[in-house]
Design a protein around this nucleic acid. Sequence first.
DNA 1: GGTTAATCGAGACGGTACGTCGAGTCTTACA
DNA 2: TGTAAGACTCGACGTACCGTCTCGATTAACC
Lengths: 196, 196, 196, 196
Amino acid sequence: MARPRSTAADGAILDATRAALVELGWSKLTMGDVAARAGVAKTTLYRRWPGKNELVVDAVAVLFDTLELPDRGSLEADVEGVVLSFARLLERPETQTALMAVVAESTRDPALRARIRTAVVDRQKRLVLEGRERAQRRGEIPPDQDEESAARHVDLVFDVIAGAVVHRALVSAEKVDADWASTFSRLLIGGLGAVG
Amino acid sequence: MARPRSTAADGAILDATRAALVELGWSKLTMGDVAARAGVAKTTLYRRWPGKNELVVDAVAVLFDTLELPDRGSLEADVEGVVLSFARLLERPETQTALMAVVAESTRDPALRARIRTAVVDRQKRLVLEGRERAQRRGEIPPDQDEESAARHVDLVFDVIAGAVVHRALVSAEKVDADWASTFSRLLIGGLGAVG
Amino acid sequence: MARPRSTAADGAILDATRAALVELGWSKLTMGDVAARAGVAKTTLYRRWPGKNELVVDAVAVLFDTLELPDRGSLEADVEGVVLSFARLLERPETQTALMAVVAESTRDPALRARIRTAVVDRQKRLVLEGRERAQRRGEIPPDQDEESAARHVDLVFDVIAGAVVHRALVSAEKVDADWASTFSRLLIGGLGAVG
Amino acid sequence: MARPRSTAADGAILDATRAALVELGWSKLTMGDVAARAGVAKTTLYRRWPGKNELVVDAVAVLFDTLELPDRGSLEADVEGVVLSFARLLERPETQTALMAVVAESTRDPALRARIRTAVVDRQKRLVLEGRERAQRRGEIPPDQDEESAARHVDLVFDVIAGAVVHRALVSAEKVDADWASTFSRLLIGGLGAVG
DNA sequence: GGTTAATCGAGACGGTACGTCGAGTCTTACA
DNA sequence: TGTAAGACTCGACGTACCGTCTCGATTAACC
């Protein structure tokens, strides 16, 4: 009976959010500014997102869909590929400034943490699962013993890869180039044997 | 000729900052509140720190001095020890909320990045250097070939350890317990041979 | 298209300003306090008035509307009446403290001076014009020769009356009572013949 | 540069205050700025004056010593002279901005009012007394009947002259020129007969 | 093909914190 | 011992955003 929400607005708002993140960074980004950029009233914005944190999570989340895991023939090459692909994503100013900020906020806000998990984290973890299955099919690593230990294994590998790349890129603030990716991959693959 | 700055105030302010971080978290922490807790005027606060970011970096920096690397007899045990010790630090609410937030800000502020590096990052890297030397003396890993590759090696190990622990603790939001530390250490030590 | 400004707020703010002037005086009056008394945000206050000076001018301006010039039968009696009526106004603490202060500020701020002129000064000058016309109708003073000299005459009389009353009330700080008003009126009327 | 300055300090401070009044006006004048201009510590300033109000009163008070009443041969000419002389004083920016401001403050501060009276007001009233005696010697006005009525008379004349000139100069903000002075004097002298 | 109700833009609203500035006091080093 | 230099507490400043609200104007779905 009533007028439905404008679908075009959603896109414009998320675009505006990313643009504002690039220009201003997380802390200088304001809801009013995003609304103005999107040619939308603040009301419209708040009708769809509870606040800045959630809006930003959604705005950067789609960027993580660009991550892929093309089959490069070996586990090591696959790891190297995803590392570089992830690093490329972390070079964008909007992911740099947004990612850490929302994680920081999420330490005090479980709902936000959940949103980050489904919108961002799981989009990466999927890659680990995929690569793992592929390597098992290739016979590079043994098949799962039981489900629980497999999950633990996935989590470990995920934290090591994502953590190392993020830490080098944002905390150490050094380039994740082909050399580093190669060395890191060798280290990871080498270690995988030890934790069987 | 003039009155010197109160040395007592510095301590009170940093204490107050940590207390406020625990209670309120990063985003709800205000300069006025910190000043009030410290029994100090806002002016005094701004006379000593340019802003919230820098103040918080200095406030949490000293916590990283609690990290130690007691000799546990083997490289693997040492890694396990530092992982757990670091994880303990990351369980504190003030480090959780502050660390990621200032890193997020630092992506747009080189001066802040430098402050984080000297006040926080280098305090951890020192542990890697120490553990490495100790392991070389034990003969667990070969001595340095040349200085440059040694530095690269240290950086890699550092990013992997710190990154993995931070990622598990704050992003994956799961406990870094003895089990995880042990498995992770085995993975790392195992991988070290591959990148020798 | 947008929400209109609350008309009720204007009244509440001006009331609050007068109340604050009575309690605190000009120099202790703060915008924040006025806002709080009016149950209004500081922003609302600044959205409508550029600053303390302008706000206070408007707040006391309406008081000058209470000045009237009832017909007492003769020019001298009319002058006496307006002198006492004006003196009564200057006995109020809010006019005492506000009037001189804004005039002092206006010496450096032409826009403020203009505001004072239209909001306050002209409200008094009207009385002189009225009394003058009435006296001319009574035949107590000759009709205007030409417009310009009439205006000069009005201005002179106005400055003499207003100036003398304000000076006695605020600078000499002595009571403007019936006696003084009577003597002053006789002096003025007596003098008017000389400047014919 | 330490203690021998103590004697010269008073003069330097008052000079600095007047200079600051000219440049900045009353409301923008700050104690720190005055101290800096005078090459003096704020401490020294507060040791000698209780606050801004009192300092400014003393700073402008000396200017009122420039008012004189040269004998121009007739009462009317004498009045004309003092009006113009007073007007000249009120053209200075430091008197304009300072005079009204301290009077405004004095409405809430009896001690300040007393200071203004002795430092400023009485310096003008002396001129009225002098001119009156002179006119009595000339036979232009009758000698005093009794002391009380004489005092009332002086006060009235004083309020009328000072009030009219100040009001025209600062409130009406129009020039007090020879023409105005002449017309005003005629009015005053003319009126004096009526209040005999 | 009107009716009607949610959505839209605009922007005013009550708040909270900002970072700065001035007042007036106090502490130190120097002369 | 008094003075300059300037750090101190306090409180107000005027601004910027927050998230909510009130508007009149615009749709789109339903009747």
